[in-house]
Design a binder for these strands. Structure first.
Ligand SMILES: [Mn+2]
Length: 693
DNA sequence: CTTGAGTTGAAAT
DNA sequence: TCAACTCAAG
């Protein structure tokens, strides 16, 4: 299943690319994706459990493409189904059988066109296909076969996590969820073009808290709630609602999060079964059994705790089953290293095996010397740090975090002035291969250093200081829950108003600039090419709204949040139809004093486009604050101690359509694969004491 | 607007 | 098998 509708929401983590960029790399291949595509051309044979040359040549094209660029290819196959999926498996098989019968019946009637449709839905990756393809492809130099103990998804992610593979060719969104850092989607065997996903870009797909303090754990929860292979999902909660939820809820207790918070927000009737399903899914993503080519044995994707966490045990514990049973069990070493090569039957004498490790060439990942002396080090793991994690002078120098694959990590800032760069988003760091220690020793933490994934080099000390992290021992106490803070327009609700029919469907793009606490100092960017600051690009930009949260230093206390009635609110007509008005309302032109959060108005598409290019998270729009319903818009909630619940709405609308702003231009600008995405509305409501509801 | 359900296509002639 | 697409309901 993958995660339905996830990919469209993650467009910003993708960029168009080419396989050239992966020349000389090791590429894992999710071969089931390619096979399923191939089956379109040989459905009848496959459905009848026969072999065909078609899928061989089809897959060969992809292999040859990679080999042409001198890649080392690892073809990864699915193994046993996970215990939790055995039920669905049976029903699928029966469905396929009935489709096959229908197909055969239609063949007898001479209706081969109709028959083919049923053959198509009767295909599956049969053992015939597996054996046939392995036999063929294992002969190719620089092509490895690796049959996963369970799912290929987890196996491929494991290869990436330990830097055995540099990227993975797939079309399945699950790989993202397993924490892969580089993925190649939609690979074209002819041209080599593809869509490249990068984990480090994932925070760009979010706004507000989810972006500034991106956590891969939270991302995983979000996906599970949307529904994944192991959990059907919470009804009526998809990406947007999920994001909205996690923007406001950041607890560490998943049970409480589901049963209390999620129920409160969406009144989704969360049952105990749901909790169990969610937890099962989460830990299946973390602890699934995979084969480790470094240690030549089966291991858990991420090391499993010996017992269920106390809070989750009531939901997961089964007296008759071993701990973590749902994520697969580890086979004996003798068997697993035979199966992984493609040998199907481990009950026979090993001498009869078709594939033997000793006979494989030196380049193979299975060759005994290939990884001699190398331990599983999670050296491609990523930890996301926001600038807030940097210690202020004299403050704590460590920061606890979890990597994308669930490894607990402690980040040390070794001179106290070491800093995570101040950006609008979380920065991804990778743990470095040379210094990280395998997690065998759980009592003694070992330091590791971090490098910037963008450059793949250690950042210059002048900017970054020296960062280091250490693996933390298990069961370290959880950090206390941070206070709830508002991340966007305090007390205001934000929504979009569509104006013209062309852009209407395209408008659900992020339209709101969200400014970080402002320093007037030059940006701490890479200081290479110095982009103009937005205010210089668009000097006539006006600050439209804003709460005077103003000059509060680092932390924004919710009690400081006040909805300030804006003069602009009065000046702008609530009627969204005044789209022709792109000139600033002169009555409102007085710039306000600087405040923490700004909503900007842009007067032409061109301006916004420039701005958008330079600060890719900002999209062209006009922001307006409608008059309050009562004619007395000036007398909105009183500043200071507002005792009534506050709810304000900003209207964000696309710009006028003319010349540069032609419908075509707008459409192109937002068209899939380029810039479009976004959260369109967010509602934050405050109660009398200025706390989030 | 957001979700969910249902459908189609995938290869290649 | 999976995801893109389309359509309709809340
Ligand atoms: Mn999958």
């Amino acid at each position: 299943m993958g995660i339905k509708t996830l990919l469209p929401s993650l467009k910003r983590a993708f960029s168009p690319g080419s396989i050239e960029a992966f020349a000389n790399k090791t590429i894992g291949v999710d071969i089931s994706c390619i096979l399923h595509r191939a089956f379109s051309g040989c459905a009848q044979e496959v459905a009848r459990n026969e072999t065909s040359d078609f899928y061989i040549t089809f897959v060969r094209r992809y292999i040859d493409l990679l080999l042409r660029y001198n890649c080392h290819v690892i073809l990864v196959y699915d193994g046993q189904p996970l215990p939790s999926k055995r039920g669905t498996n049976a029903s699928r098989t029966s469905r396929r059988e009935s489709n096959l019968q229908k197909a055969e019946a239609l063949v007898l009637q001479g209706n081969s066109n109709e028959a083919y449709k049923y053959f198509q839905s009767a295909t599956s990756i049969t053992s015939v296909v597996v054996e046939h393809t392995i036999a063929e492809f294992s002969k190719i130099p620089n092509v490895d076969i690796l049959v996963a103990p369970y799912e290929a998804d987890a196996q491929l992610a494991y290869l990436m996590k330990h830097n055995i593979a540099d990227a993975v060719v797939t079309d399945d969104s699950d790989l993202i969820l397993f924490g892969c850092s580089t993925l190649i989607y939609k690979l074209n065997w002819n041209t080599g073009s593809c869509e490249v996903y990068e984990l480090s870009k994932l925070p760009l797909c979010f706004s507000g808290y989810m972006r500034r303090k991106f956590s891969f754990d939270t991302f995983r929860y979000l996906c599970i709630i949307m529904g994944c292979d192991y959990f059907p999902g919470i009804s009526k909660v998809g990406f947007k609602k999920g994001v909205e939820f996690f923007d406001c809820n950041r607890g560490t207790n998943l049970v409480k999060m589901l049963k209390q918070d999620l129920n409160a927000k969406f009144s989704a009737g969360i049952t105990d079964e749901d909790v169990q399903g969610f937890l099962t899914a989460n830990f299946t993503f973390l602890y699934q059994v995979v084969y480790c080519p470094l240690s030549k044995k089966e291991v858990a994707f991420t090391e499993r705790p010996d017992e269920y966490p106390l809070t989750y045990a009531p939901y997961l514990k089964r007296s008759n089953l071993p701990v973590w049973h749902f994520a697969g069990s580890i086979s004996p070493e003798e068997d697993s290293c035979r199966k992984v090569l493609g040998n199907r039957d481990t009950t026979v004498d090993p001498k009869l095996d078709k594939y033997k490790r000793e006979l494989l060439p030196k380049w193979s990942v299975h060759h005994p010397e290939k990884f001699a002396g190398r331990a599983p080090t999670a050296d491609a793991d990523v930890v996301f740090l926001s600038s807030q994690a940097s210690p202020a002078a004299g403050a704590k120098r460590t920061h606890s975090a979890t990597t994308n694959t669930g490894e607990p990590v402690r980040v040390l800032f070794t001179p106290p002035q070491a800093k995570v760069p101040r950006t609008q988003q979380t920065t991804a760091f990778t743990t470095q291969a040379s210094t990280i220690q395998p997690r065998v020793d759980k009592t003694q933490s070992q330091p590791v250093s971090l490098r910037s994934p963008a450059t793949n080099k250690k950042p210059p000390a002048s900017i970054w200081g020296r960062l280091s992290a250490q693996v933390v021992k298990k069961n370290s106490q959880e950090s206390p829950q941070p206070p709830v803070r508002l991340n966007t327009f305090a007390g205001n609700s934000v929504s979009l108003a569509s104006q013209d029919s062309i852009t209407e469907k395209l408008v659900n793009k992020l339209l709101i600039q969200h400014k970080e606490p402002i320093d007037e100092r030059p940006e701490d960017t890479e200081n290479t090419s110095k982009p103009e600051k937005p205010s210089e690009i668009v000097p006539e930009t006006q600050v439209m709204s804003v709460d005077k949260i103003a000059d509060e230093p680092a932390l924004l206390k919710s009690s400081d949040v006040k909805a300030t009635p804006d003069k602009e609110a009065a000046g702008v007509d609530e009627n969204a139809a005044d789209k022709s008005t792109t000139t600033p309302d002169s009555s409102t032109a007085t710039p306000k004093r600087r405040s923490r959060h700004q909503v900007r108005r842009f007067d032409s598409f061109a301006q916004l486009e420039i701005l958008h290019r330079q600060m890719p998270l900002i999209s062209p729009v006009r922001v307006e604050i409608p008059r309050s319903r009562g004619s007395s818009s000036q007398s909105s909630p009183k500043p200071g101690t507002s005792s009534t619940p506050i709810k304000r709405r900003l209207t964000v609308s696309p710009l006028e359509t003319s010349s540069r702003n032609s419908p075509e231009a707008v459409k192109k600008f937002f068209s899939p694969g380029t810039e479009g995405f976004g959260l369109t509305s967010k509602v934050y409501q405050l109660n009398a004491t200025n706390k989030l509801l």
